[in-house]
Design a protein around this nucleic acid. Structure first.
Lengths: 110, 110
DNA sequence: TTAGATTGCAACCCTAGGGTTGCACTATAC
DNA sequence: GTATAGTGCAACCCTAGGGTTGCAATCTAA
C-alpha cells in the first residue's frame, strides 16, 4: 500500500504557492530557491520549505553545483495521482476511462 | 482563469479522509453523511464538513430524499486536475503527453 | 584575505481547518 | 400523539503548516 505516497503527492499539490513553484520550474528549467523566490511573492525560506515538501513527495530533485543548489522537476510521481483520479472517475466519464488505460499501460521507453 | 477552481479541487483531494469519502461513495454509490460515517473513523459532523468541501469543489452533488440527504460523486471536475498535471508532466513523460491529448479532445458523448 | 552571495537552521507568529460535543429542528414510524 | 432517526448549526479545541525574521556557515570572486 502506498497510501502515504498518494498522500504526499496530493498534499504537495494542494498548496497554490507550491503549484506556482512547480510551474516556474517547469517553464524556466532547473533553478535555485533564491532564483525562484525572485519571481514569487514569498521569501526564499518559504520557497525552500516548499521545495523540501516537493522533494519529499518525489516531485522535485536537487543537485549541488558549487555553492548553489539546483532544483528540477521529476514528474513521474504525478502518474500515481493521475491514476488515482482516473481510476475513480472511470465509472462515470469515458475520457477518464481512456486515461486510466493509458496510465496502466507499461512504459514505452525511457 | 479558473485557478480558484483548481485550488478547490486539489485542496479537496489533499485530505486522506476526504479521499476515503470519495472512495466510499464511488464503491457504495449514493450515501448519506450518517451512512458514510458508520464506516469511517470520524463522526458524522466531520463527514458532513468533508462533503460540503467536496461539494464546493464540485466533486459531489446532493439530493434530498425525505429526511435524508443523499450524496453522490460528480467526477467531471477531476478532468481539470488531471489536465493540470498532464500538461505539466507532458514535457518529461511520454505517457502523460498522451494523457493530455486525451483530456483535451472534446467529449464524445454525455 | 576580504567582501558579497547563497544556503541552512532555528525560533517564532498566526491562521486554516480537521475534529469534537451539544443542541435545535425536521421528518418518518409506530 | 410520541419516539426515533436523520440533518443542520454553532461553539470550541488543537495541531499542522505556511510565512516570517535573524543569524551562522559556506562558497565564490575580487
Amino acid at each position: 500500500m502506498r497510501a502515504d505516497r498518494t498522500d504526499a503527492i496530493f498534499s504537495a499539490l494542494a498548496d497554490p504557492t507550491r503549484r506556482q513553484v512547480i510551474r516556474a520550474l517547469s517553464e524556466q528549467g532547473p533553478s535555485t530557491a533564491t532564483g525562484l523566490a525572485a519571481n514569487l511573492p514569498v521569501t526564499r525560506q518559504a520557497v525552500t520549505k516548499h521545495l523540501i515538501t516537493l522533494a519529499d513527495a518525489g516531485l522535485v530533485t536537487s543537485t549541488r553545483r558549487g555553492r548553489e543548489k539546483l532544483y528540477q522537476i521529476s514528474p513521474r510521481p504525478l502518474t500515481d495521482a493521475v491514476s488515482w483520479m482516473a481510476d475513480l472517475g472511470a465509472r462515470w466519464d469515458d475520457r477518464l476511462a481512456a486515461l486510466r488505460d493509458h496510465v496502466l499501460t507499461p512504459k514505452r521507453r525511457r
